[in-house]
Design a binder for these strands. Structure first.
Lengths: 213, 213
DNA sequence: ATCCCACTCATCCTTTTGATGGAGGCCTCC
DNA sequence: GGAGGCCTCCATCAAAAGGATGAGTGGGAT
């Protein structure tokens, strides 16, 4: 029997994180090296522990999973990541793989699939399930939004009017309208409300959360 | 030592559900009676197993947690439920407690808190953490939307125009506008896009999800 | 029976939004 | 240097949305 695969679990929800650790520690060839509850802590823990595989959630406070993966990989290019999340927006998937994740799994998947993915990624292979690949394909066909358009879109989702967005970005309302127009056509919708919903579904932007916890 | 508390775990994400079960089975006074992955299955399992406490997620396919709790309680009024979810919208909390949940916890809470809640609820007490109580208080102060207004709001979130909503509901556009007007003022916003966002944040409606899984 | 309220509809008016087309400055890539 | 893309701005027009007000209907509660 070879040495176990050492895992770093990064997940902000305590109950889920500890449940995950309890679950994984049941596998004979897997060992929990440590855990973190946000992207920053993940970076620190990675430096300390040098895990074989890092299981990473997206959407965490302070620093999200994508930024965390990017940062760690710039320092440790050989680092291997599996994204494990509930979000299946094509943009989330794209950004995570772009950042260097080797696998993208949903929490709804079978535990066996997760274990298989851990072993595959540890062995240097990538693993993207068909359902995820399909989502990703959607994104490939879609048109990219520019940085400015995303900025405007974020404010649309925040419920701001064009005039407010203009003041916020220090540009004229006419310019805002022009950005709105182009992003509407890129998203394939014809009003801002629909644009907001599509942006949330695709994971281009996320709902501002007012968490107490 | 008394008999263990028998738990039914209802959660649609396999990885989380099995993690949760692994986690809870570590507690000496707790026993996993069974599990379900949606509201319908929860009803069946409850009838079969008569668990002491049911741990229930909201937002599941087929039938959500609230409806499931309502149905089970109409059949077994003494059934005890703990809602364990990531959603902290005041409307979610309100509806769950309304349906008869005895505790409402977030997945981000400490595992100890979860165990404490299970024991409390099993002992017949209710347990709502301060952060949740605070959220709930917000909802008490807020104005209730009528059924029709919620119907309109759902369609606003779906990105439909007033004209479409009117056709959809078989009413005139003028009437839709009138509903929109009243719901805007009740939600304290001044345009439909903002209304959509607030509705999502508060949990009055949820994003239509295009899950592959 | 009466009152309240949700639901329905209409009209008029203002504001916002979306659609179109054009234009200049700036950057990077070739 | 030129091409293309992005960001910026403008004017104008049409459509949609929002605000204000008034009013009729029916059901449910008192």
């Amino acid at each position: 029997m070879s040495t176990p695969i050492r895992i770093l679990v990064v997940e902000d929800h305590n109950v889920v994180r500890q449940g995950l650790m309890a679950l994984l520690s049941g596998a004979p060839d897997i060992e929990i090296a440590g855990s973190a509850s946000d992207g920053h802590e993940a970076i620190e823990k990675f430096r300390q522990l040098s895990p074989d595989v890092t299981l990473m959630d997206l959407q965490m406070p302070r620093m999200g999973g994508v930024d965390s993966i990017s940062t760690i990989r710039s320092e440790f290019p050989q680092a291997r990541f599996i994204v494990l999340t509930t979000f299946d927006g094509d943009e989330d998937i794209y950004r995570a793989l772009q950042a260097g994740a080797k696998a993208y799994l949903l929490k709804g998947m079978e535990v066996d699939e997760l274990l298989t993915a851990i072993r595959a990624v540890h062995a240097g292979r990538a693993l993207v399930p068909p359902s995820i690949a399909e989502k990703l394909a959607q994104r490939v066909g879609a048109q990219e939004l520019t940085a400015r358009e995303i900025g405007v879109l974020e404010r649309i989702v925040a419920g701001r009017a064009n005039k407010e967005i203009a003041m916020d970005l220090n540009i004229s309302e006419a310019t805002v309208k022009s950005h709105v127009n182009s992003l509407l056509s890129k998203l394939g919708v014809d009003d801002r409300t629909h644009a907001a919903v599509v942006a949330l579904q695709r994971g281009i932007v996320h709902l501002p959360q007012s968490k107490p916890e």
